[in-house]
Simulated assay, not measured.
Amino acid sequence: MLNNIYLALIHYPVLGRHGNIVSSAVTNLDVHDIARTCRTYNIKGYFVVSNLPAQREIVDNVLNYWLEEFGREYNPSRSEALTVVKRASYIEDVIEEIDRIEGKKPVLIFTSAKKGIDRLTYEEMRKFIISSEKPHLLLFGTSWGLPKEIEKTCDYSLEPLRADSDFNHLSVRAAVAIILDRLIHEDTIEVRRD
C-alpha cells in the first residue's frame, strides 16, 4: 500500500566526521526541498527531527512564514509542499505520532550511503511496501549518516545508491529524491491518489 509512507530527516543522533554522535544543524534548504519532493511523491508526512530547541525553532519559523504569513500568498505551491512537514525532538516522538495517526507503529527503514549486510534492493522494498498495510517510515541521516545503533532498531535497511562509485557523497536532498523515485515509480503514482 503506497499511501502509508512517511519520512524522517534525522539531525540527532547522527555521526560526526570522526564517527562520534552529534547533533547537526537544520538547513532551510532541506526543509523546503525535501518537502517539495515529499509532496510530489505524496508522502504522508515529513518529520524534521532535532533534539535542539533552537534548531526546531528554525523549522517553526520556516513553516510559519510559508504557511501563515506572506509566503502563503506569495508562493502557494511552496506553501502546499510545506503542509507535509512536521517537527519532532526524537525518533521515538515520530514513531509515537505515526502510531497515533495510523493506529499502528510504522515499519522502520534505514538508509545509508555505506554498504552493509542484509540490505534490500529498491525493487524488493517497493514490493514489500505495496503488499503491506502497515505505515512505513524512511529514516535519512544528516551529517555523516545514521549510527549503527539506529540501524539495529530498524526492520529493514536499503542498499546504498552509489556504493561502488569513486565519489559517494550525495546531498540528503538528492538522496531523498532518488530513493523516493526508485520506490515510487511514475506508473504507481496514480495508485496513491485513491
Results as ranks from 00 to 15, higher is better:
Val172Cys: 05
Thr83Met: 15
Ile129Ser: 00
Leu67Asp: 08
Asn3Ile: 06
Arg182Pro: 04
Phe128Gln: 02
Lys148His: 14
Tyr65Trp: 15
Pro13Ile: 08
Asn51Phe: 03
Tyr90Ile: 09
Gln55Asn: 14
Thr111Cys: 03
Asn168Met: 14
Gly71Asn: 04
Asn42Gly: 10
Ala8Met: 02
Leu139Glu: 01
Ile101Gln: 07
Leu108Glu: 11
Asp118Asn: 15
Ile98Phe: 09
Asn75His: 10
Leu170Asn: 03
Lys134Ala: 09
Trp144Val: 05
Tyr6Glu: 04
Ala88Gly: 09
Glu124Ile: 14
Leu52Pro: 02
Glu186Thr: 07
Ile43His: 00
Tyr6Gln: 08
Lys114Cys: 06
Asp93Gly: 12
Ile129Asn: 01
Ala113Phe: 05
Asn4His: 07
Val172Asp: 04
Glu102Ile: 05
Lys105Cys: 06
Asn168Tyr: 11
Ile109Thr: 11
Glu151Gly: 11
Pro76Met: 06
Val94Gln: 04
Thr153Asn: 14
Asp33Glu: 11
Ile91Asn: 03
Ala175Leu: 13
Arg193His: 13
Glu186Asp: 07
Ser89Pro: 01
His136Val: 14
Ile91Glu: 03
Asn42Glu: 07
Arg182Asp: 05
Asp155Pro: 07
Ser24Asp: 15
Leu158Phe: 00
Ala54Gly: 10
Gly141His: 02
Thr40Asn: 15
Cys38Lys: 06
Ile178Thr: 05
Gly145Ser: 00
Pro147Leu: 08
Asp166Val: 08
Glu123Thr: 11
Ser50Val: 05
Val22Trp: 08
Ala174Gly: 01
